[in-house]
């Protein structure tokens, strides 16, 4: 079993029979994958798949805060640009500075 933390989420990749399950905490992300693939390859594929399903980096256009539209139960409010976690397009947040 391989465990890793990615994008503040804890994942496990576990061999069940000859296939693989991926869990995000207790929730199943995938079941029965990569049957017959060598262990190291299957783990690498699972990590890559997690990164596809849960991409880091969200590009937000807008929001148009004066528009009357709400989406479902979500009402858009203006971003708190002074919040420590606010990320500008061209610089890091102050709370999560890039580590090289």
């Amino acid at each position: 079993m391989k465990s890793f933390t990615y994008n503040d989420m804890d994942f496990t990749v576990e061999k069940v029979g000859n296939a693989w399950d991926i869990k995000n905490g207790n929730a199943l992300v995938a079941a029965g994958l990569f049957a017959g693939v060598a262990d190291a390859d299957a783990e690498a594929k699972a990590v890559a798949l997690v990164k596809t399903i849960f991409p880091v980096g969200v590009r937000v256009i807008g929001p148009d805060t004066v528009h009357p539209i709400t989406v479902g139960d979500i009402k858009y409010f203006p971003p708190a640009v002074n919040h420590a976690n606010f990320v500008y397009w061209n610089k890091d947040s102050s709370s999560q500075a890039k580590k090289l």
């Binding site: 199943l28 992300v29 995938a30 079941a31």
Partner: peptide, 23 residues
């Protein structure tokens, strides 16, 4: 809905099937 995804993926596993869930 992530909860619905989680539930259906778990159901598929219980059926012995192969699935991924993507929000």
């Amino acid at each position: 809905n992530q909860k619905n995804i989680d539930r259906v993926v778990a159901d598929v596993k219980a059926m012995g099937g192969e699935a991924i869930g993507v929000m």
